[in-house]
Amino acid sequence: MIQYALKCADGHSFDSWFQSSDAFDKLHAAGMVACAVCGSTEVEKSVMAPRVQASRDKAKAQPDAPSRPLSEPASPAEQALAELRRRIEANSDYVGRNFAAEARAIHDGEAPARSIYGEARPDEAKALIEDGIPVAPLPFRPQRKSN
């Protein structure tokens, strides 16, 4: 596996893994490498520094460099998703796995109108859409709340 730093024509930078250099070339030529932010297929490799692993003895002797916490978004796309999540969680009620029933009750006027989010099986979401109940998938998994 090889990781490439990539950049699209709009200037978005992102990383992607490929099975080999040849695999990247074939996928790129077929227009199957797309920007992770905007979807553009006008993508090229960015300048990257090679990652060479230090010997085990040397790695043990040197303390690790400070790194970014895993919970901190790195790219603009990750930051936008984090902000979207924050807004949805702050302005909507989490209804958990009862999402389909609650969405239907709101649509039918049996429950108070409000913004909700939760979890639904694909067949439940499809039934809501077929019945004209507006729903949309979220680009993240809800954090399950307990009590």
Rank of each mutant, 00 (worst) to 15 (best):
D131H: 02
M48G: 14
A74R: 13
R87K: 15
S92V: 08
K58Q: 12
A105F: 00
D93G: 14
C8G: 04
R85V: 08
I88S: 04
Q19G: 10
M48H: 12
A59R: 13
K7P: 01
R97A: 13
D131R: 03
M48D: 13
A80F: 00
C38W: 15
P122M: 05
D108Y: 00
A65Y: 10
H28S: 13
V37F: 06
V33C: 00
V47G: 09
P142E: 02
K60Y: 11
Q62K: 08
L128F: 05
A136R: 08
G132M: 03
F140G: 11
A36K: 01
D108I: 06
R68N: 14
D93V: 14
C38V: 15
V135I: 14
A77N: 04
E102N: 03
A100F: 02
E124W: 07
G39T: 01
D123G: 06
E72I: 10
L81V: 03
S146Y: 07
Q62R: 09
G118W: 07
D10K: 11
I106C: 08
V52I: 14
G109N: 05
S13H: 13
S13I: 14
A36Y: 04
R68I: 10
M32I: 00
E83F: 03
G96T: 14
D131S: 02
S75F: 01
L6N: 01
